[in-house]
Every structure is written in C-alpha cells, then in structure tokens.
Computed example of a mutant assay.
Amino acid sequence: MAEDVRPIVAFATHNAHKIDEVYDILRERVPGLERGHLLSAADADAPAPVECGISYQENALIKARALAERTGLPAIADDSGLSVDVMGGAPGIFSALWSGRHGDDRANLELLLAQMEDIPDANRQAAFVCAAVMVQPDGREIVEMGIMGGRLTREPAGAAGFGYDPIFVASGQCVTNAELEPDVKNAISHRGGAFRALAPHVAALLPRR
C-alpha cells in the first residue's frame, strides 16, 4: 500500500468480516479505492453507540453520526438483519442479539432454527435487509437500501460468511450464503446492493489526481 494513502471515510463497525466484505463491494465500483482509505471504528478507537433506533435506517444513522463527529471524516455505516415472514419480520433489527448475547452468531441462528422447527419448508421464506448510510461532518446524510430474498434451511451449512449466512439460501441459489464464493454472494446480497448504491458518494471523496 502506498505510503500517501490516507483515510477518506470512516466505517462505523468493529466487525472485521464486515469491513473486508464492504471493501470488496466498494472497490469494484470505486476505482482507486484502497483498504487504507477506510478508517474503521476500531482504528479510531471509537466506542459503539447505543443503537436505540426502531429501524435499520435509524440505527445506521446513529452509528455514522457518532463516528463522523469523533473523526471529522465522512462516515459510512450499515444496519442489517434477517426478516422472517412467518415471524412478522423478526428478528429484524434485533438479529445480532436475538439470543440475548450481541454478536453470538451461533447462538442466534440456533435459537431461530428452534423457533422455526415446526414451520414447513413451504413457509420458511425470509429476507436479509440492509440500510447503508453516509453522514458528512456538515450534517448531510444519504440512505440507501438493499434486500436479498430467500428461505431458511433446517440445518447450518458452510463455513464462509457470518451471522445467519449458514441457514439462508438466497432466491435462485441452491446452497447457503455461507457456501457461496464471496464474489457471488456480494453480487446478490442485501449489503452489496446497498453499498453499490452508496459507492458513487464514496468515489466522490477520493482525492483528484
């Protein structure tokens, strides 16, 4: 990486998997983007704010606003979750703490599978939803949405991805998200759709050569 690469945007996450995934999504649409252009919340030693919103958009904006204020950089953030049809859209914004322990992926998906145990295959439709946002230090805000429809399996499969990926099969696919190659998943994912829509705004931050 070139020594003169400096952060141009802060990314409000401490999740290393998510940082790598979003960087891979953005760099396809933002020529010249390097990993060093992204300053994570961990890099900035920024605490995670309380996500007290009642929608994906609100929670993403809470995170981006806090990081933009702390770093003085434009900040991007996302909030995403799994919406299960027969559960009225749950776990939704509570997806990451569904089991009561925030970020315990295995416990979360095992609890969800147990709750869905008696639901027949024909009624296991679900969708991943993502809100990706950018907040400028001057208060300007951009919100983009992405959705990936599919269905839930009965057993986890695959070692890639994170969260509920091992129990979700996207529409048009025959394996779980955790069994897909990263580039295939990114091309169809909720997060991919939302961040591709946000990409032109990130590209505008790159220094002109």
Results as ranks from 00 to 15, higher is better:
residue 112 L to R: 01
residue 65 R to P: 09
residue 37 H to C: 07
residue 201 H to S: 11
residue 118 D to P: 00
residue 152 L to H: 04
residue 62 I to M: 08
residue 63 K to E: 00
residue 76 I to C: 09
residue 148 M to R: 14
residue 17 H to Q: 13
residue 149 G to I: 11
residue 5 V to G: 04
residue 50 V to F: 01
residue 139 G to D: 09
residue 180 L to H: 06
residue 85 D to Y: 10
residue 48 A to K: 06
residue 51 E to D: 05
residue 160 A to H: 11
residue 101 R to T: 15
residue 56 Y to P: 00
residue 138 D to V: 11
residue 187 A to T: 12
residue 117 E to F: 02
residue 129 V to K: 05
residue 194 A to L: 07
residue 20 D to R: 12
residue 56 Y to I: 00
residue 192 G to K: 06
residue 128 F to L: 08
residue 208 R to K: 15
residue 204 A to E: 11
residue 2 A to D: 11
residue 75 A to E: 06
residue 193 G to E: 14
residue 22 V to P: 03
residue 205 L to E: 15
residue 179 E to M: 15
residue 5 V to C: 07
residue 29 R to L: 13
residue 207 P to R: 13
residue 81 G to V: 00
residue 173 Q to L: 08
residue 129 V to R: 12
residue 185 K to A: 07
residue 94 F to Q: 15
residue 72 G to V: 13
residue 21 E to P: 04
residue 6 R to S: 15
residue 11 F to K: 04
residue 83 S to Y: 01
residue 196 R to N: 10
residue 93 I to C: 09
residue 18 K to P: 10
residue 183 D to K: 10
residue 14 H to L: 02
residue 181 E to N: 10
residue 107 A to K: 01
residue 95 S to M: 10
residue 171 S to R: 13
residue 131 A to N: 02
residue 132 A to W: 05
residue 89 G to E: 05
residue 160 A to I: 08
residue 24 D to M: 10
residue 113 L to M: 07
residue 41 A to V: 07
residue 80 S to M: 02
residue 180 L to P: 08
residue 116 M to C: 06
residue 105 D to F: 06
residue 26 L to H: 02
residue 201 H to I: 12
residue 167 I to W: 05
residue 107 A to E: 09
residue 1 M to D: 12
residue 186 N to K: 10
residue 76 I to H: 01
residue 116 M to L: 14
residue 132 A to P: 05
residue 161 G to D: 03
residue 62 I to L: 12
residue 174 C to G: 12
residue 136 Q to R: 14
residue 195 F to S: 11
residue 111 L to W: 04
residue 126 A to W: 00
residue 24 D to G: 06
residue 50 V to P: 01
residue 45 D to Q: 13
residue 111 L to F: 02
residue 208 R to W: 11
residue 77 A to H: 03
residue 53 G to Y: 01
residue 200 P to G: 08
residue 198 L to Y: 08
residue 149 G to C: 13
residue 120 P to I: 07
residue 47 P to R: 09
residue 131 A to F: 02
residue 207 P to L: 14
residue 159 A to C: 14
residue 128 F to C: 00
residue 113 L to P: 00
residue 156 P to S: 08
residue 35 R to L: 15
residue 42 A to P: 03
residue 127 A to Q: 12
residue 157 A to H: 12
residue 151 R to D: 09
residue 149 G to D: 10
residue 136 Q to H: 15
residue 98 W to S: 07
residue 62 I to F: 06
residue 127 A to C: 13
residue 13 T to P: 07
residue 130 C to D: 01
residue 123 N to R: 13
residue 70 R to T: 03
residue 133 V to N: 00
residue 78 D to G: 02
residue 85 D to H: 15
residue 90 A to H: 09
residue 44 A to E: 02
